[in-house]
């Protein structure tokens, strides 16, 4: 089957609009195709038949490093067989996405969380990107730092299953909205004090200098 020759000649025709090929082109190409470009269509293998050799071939074709096992996991998860079970990398990624979602809902930066949890910013960033597996104690610390229950983080990380009712999803989304709203209003509390006649803000929580002076200059009897 000479596919190469056919496609080449068609390209020449469509791109230029007229046939402008060099002399003896077909003759030469026929010779070349007979020697080098003759390819047979390989028999298609079923998708479920997965073998390590096939993985290496695919990796080589994609031009990736063969020693990187994560790529194999990714590739395997794309196949029909691998998509049924959650791979390790996918779980870490889902958990990291959930952590980032909660952090954004809280309106905190990575530095804030790092200060609260005593973990480094780079480690937390890796956790969020799903590059490392998050152990349970780290997850508890992150949950405490974000002031979000751990089960909400893990719940958000779970992919939606068939038996799940929509109420839980609805509640999780509503909880995130409430958290975001509460976070946005943290700095803008209602004023406690009052504006006096000379346009000065008087806060009853902080003692004014007059009161302090009065206390200090109290007569001793």
């Amino acid at each position: 089957m000479n596919l190469y020759n056919c496609s080449l000649s068609r390209n020449l025709l469509t791109s230029t609009g007229r046939l402008s090929v060099p002399f003896n082109f077909f003759e030469k190409s026929e010779i070349l195709s007979a020697k080098q470009f003759t390819r047979t269509v390989p028999a298609q293998r079923p998708l479920s038949a997965w073998s390590p050799a096939r993985t290496w071939n695919l990796l080589a074709a994609l031009g990736k490093k063969m020693s990187n096992t994560e790529n194999i996991v990714k590739l395997k998860s794309r196949t029909k067989e691998g998509s049924l079970a959650l791979s390790e990398g996918r779980v870490a990624k889902l958990l990291g996405t959930a952590i980032r979602l909660c952090r954004n809902a809280r309106g905190l930066t990575l530095l804030d969380v790092a200060r609260r949890t005593q973990y480094s910013v780079s480690h937390l960033a890796k956790c969020e990107r799903g590059e490392v597996q998050v152990p349970y104690d780290t997850l508890v610390a992150i949950g405490a730092g974000l002031e979000i229950p751990v089960y909400l983080i893990t719940y958000l990380a779970e992919p939606p299953s068939k038996g799940e009712t929509t109420l839980e999803r609805q509640l999780a989304h509503a909880a995130l909205v409430c958290l975001r709203e509460l976070r946005s209003s943290e700095g803008s509390e209602e004023p406690v004090g009052k504006w006096n006649s000379s346009s000065q803000y008087v806060d009853p929580r902080t003692p004014s200098s007059k009161v302090e002076n009065r206390r200090m200059n109290r007569p001793k009897w």
Partner: peptide, 24 residues
């Protein structure tokens, strides 16, 4: 916007409900 007290109460209720779901 609703008050902070309303939002906090709603959040507490939601968390309790989700906790009951996951037996926590």
């Amino acid at each position: 916007r609703p008050t902070n007290a309303t939002l906090r109460s709603a959040l507490e209720l939601i968390f309790e409900r989700l906790a009951r779901q996951s037996n926590v």
